[in-house]
Simulated assay, not measured.
Amino acid sequence: MSVLSCENLDAGHTRRSPCVRGLDLSLSEGEIVALLGPNGAGKTTLLMTLAGLLPRLGGSVLLAGEQLGSGNTRAAVRRGLVLVPDDRALFKKLSVAQNLRLAIRGRGPTARSSIDEVLQYFPALEARLNLAAGQLSGGEQQMLAIGRALVQRPKVLLIDELSMGLAPVVVESILGVLRNVASSEGTAVMLVEQHVRLALGIADRAVVLVHGHVSLEDDATVLSNDVGRIERAYLGQSGGDSRPQAV
């Protein structure tokens, strides 16, 4: 069942020069889609538009079959769509526990249960609960950012540049958690990732975006056995200077 779908979506900062043009894309319940592409392809713009941080320039976005309003982040979150941005957007002076509690709607036993679930996914955070978020390592900060999204129990989780500045072993661990969340909770995940092989290892499907258009879309397992197709998709429209990283 499609939980998120874009139809003829135009996205960007100005109507004169949209970064994403006429995009059709869907995301199913429990599915992980790796959104790949060279720098400047429109990946971050797409996620920001879906999350309501940028107004749509055209087209429509459906969440669970209903139209999602344009440029309204609060409405998107209330409907179950949550973005983890590339800068993680943590409250650096607040503790890990405070960052998690701020993201929870409601209080009482349900809130405690939500935090306990996050700690099960990311046990490294349990000993850090009273530590300021700004004092965490890069990997721990990413765990907290994703944990803060998970306590909101999203239907759709968008993650931008998950691996930025992190060691591959940390990225692998976090990707494993996302696979678990998608499979056990039915959460749909779209992640922007430059480490192609790591992303393909846990994704169900990969989409390559080049100059705002889908250049390639296929089953992740199929593409992991022929990564050259991804490289050709990058090079076919990007001038040959933006090869996928860590292929």
Rank of each mutant, 00 (worst) to 15 (best):
M143S: 03
V84G: 02
A203Y: 10
E66T: 10
A145R: 01
T73R: 02
I104C: 05
A64T: 07
K93Y: 10
M48R: 15
N8K: 13
K92N: 11
K93S: 13
G59R: 01
D226I: 10
L83V: 01
L119Q: 13
S215D: 04
A199K: 02
M48H: 13
A64W: 01
P55H: 05
V222Y: 06
H13V: 09
L129D: 07
G134D: 07
L191V: 02
E7V: 04
G58M: 12
G58Y: 11
V207S: 03
A203T: 08
G71F: 09
G37L: 06
G228S: 06
G212V: 09
E140A: 14
G212S: 10
Q152E: 14
L144Y: 08
L235W: 05
R74W: 08
G37R: 04
A64D: 14
A97V: 15
V33I: 13
V169C: 01
D219I: 09
T14Y: 00
S113N: 02
I230S: 04
E193Y: 05
V84H: 03
S70W: 12
Q67S: 12
Q120P: 00
A132K: 09
A203Q: 09
R179G: 15
V169A: 06
L27K: 00
I104R: 00
S184V: 10
L150R: 04
Q98A: 15
Q194M: 10
N72L: 08
G69C: 06
G236S: 12
R112E: 14
N180D: 10
